[in-house]
Amino acid sequence: MQKPLTILHTEASCGWGGQEIRILTEMAGMNARGHRTMLICPAESNIYREAQERGLDAHALPIGKKRLPGLLALRAWLQQQHVDVINTHSSTDSWLAALACKTLRRAPPIVRTRHISAPINNKGSTRWLYQEATQFIVTTGERLRETLIRENRYDPERILSVTTGIDSQRFVPGDKQMARQVLGLGQGPIIGIVATMRGWKGHSFLLEAFAKLQNPQAQLVMVGHGPQYDNLRALAESLGISGQVLMPGNQQDVVPWLQALDCFVLPSWANEGVPQAMLQAMFVGLPIITTDVGSITEAISHGNNGLIVPTKDSTALLQAITQLLQTPALAMEMGRQARATALERFDFVRMIDKMEHVFERVVVGH
């Protein structure tokens, strides 16, 4: 390792999900290695509050929108602080950081992390942002990296896939019955999802599939919150299954919720890298039902550690859920394979090693 680095993360998003969790866990991991990390985000954002609760160095600036006050505030902050490298995470803060650095005499290099698979346009301004203003791009999946190289013609030597790493000491298989007892869940089949409630996560198709299951002993647990929360609750009521659907909102510790499940379902139809919650479920030893979106299939192999179904297809989801519930030996073997895959490829230490190497490479090259 070179000398300890001062790493600044920027995040314009006010939401809460895997992207924000990765930023904070990565900051803590770098701090543990002797680096100094800081975060700039809007005062009203969830990540600002959570960073403070975790004892991380967070600074509130008006960077939630692409506006001049945010640009000037960020520029002034950078003039007053020594930073070795900036890691941007969303479109708005990436633009503000790029423009601020463009106007500074001695600006730090920028690393842009792309967390989702949404396409990037090929406008000249966007190309400037990614290939001139940004020194290095990190994607959260290899397929995302390949898309940037193929579709956007970005320099492959300056893009690396670094999948989100999971704490293998914390996310472990547990006593399913004990977890259910502690959480007040039933002892029948339990299907679950942990995800921010956005439309493209596919919760509505999971609700429709669960309704078709027609098993009064079964429960569907949907951990998380988000803009679709009220709509999903209303959908569960309209389907006549609200009594079997538990929506506990965001949870500080999702481990017991995962340990209580029989299978984990993530029916996303857009915008995924390798989803963090899915990896957590794999470490807990759960069989996975999901879709071929983003870089999901870099973790899930159909028939081996999970089942891949078509997107937006509640009937296919129902068939996959039924298959796992009716063949517990198959579900158990898929869960075992899922954990083995996770331990081999998605450990937290591996992620920190790779990100540390990226930051050191960029700083030395700059």
Rank of each mutant, 00 (worst) to 15 (best):
L5S: 09
E11S: 07
C14I: 11
E20S: 08
I21E: 11
L24S: 09
N31E: 15
L39Y: 08
C41E: 02
Y48T: 02
D57F: 02
I63L: 12
K66G: 14
P69Y: 08
G70P: 04
Q80T: 13
V83M: 06
V85I: 11
I86M: 07
N87V: 13
W95T: 01
A97L: 07
A97T: 13
L99M: 15
T103Y: 03
L104F: 07
R105W: 03
I110Q: 09
V111L: 06
H115D: 15
P119H: 09
G124T: 12
T126A: 10
T126G: 10
R127K: 15
Y130E: 15
Q131Y: 01
Q131D: 15
E132Q: 15
Q135M: 04
I137T: 14
T140I: 11
G141F: 01
R145E: 01
R145C: 06
R153G: 08
E157F: 00
R158T: 13
R158E: 05
S168T: 06
R170K: 14
M178N: 12
R180Q: 08
V182C: 02
G184D: 11
L185P: 05
Q187I: 03
I190A: 08
K201R: 14
G202L: 06
H203N: 14
K212L: 13
L213F: 04
N215A: 10
A218E: 00
Q219K: 14
V221Q: 06
V223K: 01
G224E: 05
D230Q: 11
R233W: 03
A234V: 00
L239W: 00
S242L: 09
P256F: 00
A260E: 08
L261T: 10
L266V: 12
S268D: 11
A270I: 06
E272Q: 03
G273H: 01
P275Q: 12
M278H: 05
M282V: 07
M282K: 02
G285I: 13
L286R: 03
P287G: 05
T297E: 14
T297H: 05
A299D: 06
I300R: 03
S301H: 08
G303L: 13
G303R: 07
I308V: 10
P310W: 00
P310G: 04
D313R: 08
D313V: 04
S314M: 06
S314Q: 09
T315N: 14
T315S: 11
T315C: 02
A316L: 04
L318E: 01
Q319L: 10
T322S: 15
T322N: 13
L325T: 07
T327S: 05
Q337H: 05
Q337T: 05
Q337V: 01
A338S: 15
T341Y: 00
D347P: 02
I352P: 03
I352D: 04
D353C: 05
D353N: 15
F359E: 04
V362P: 01
V363P: 09
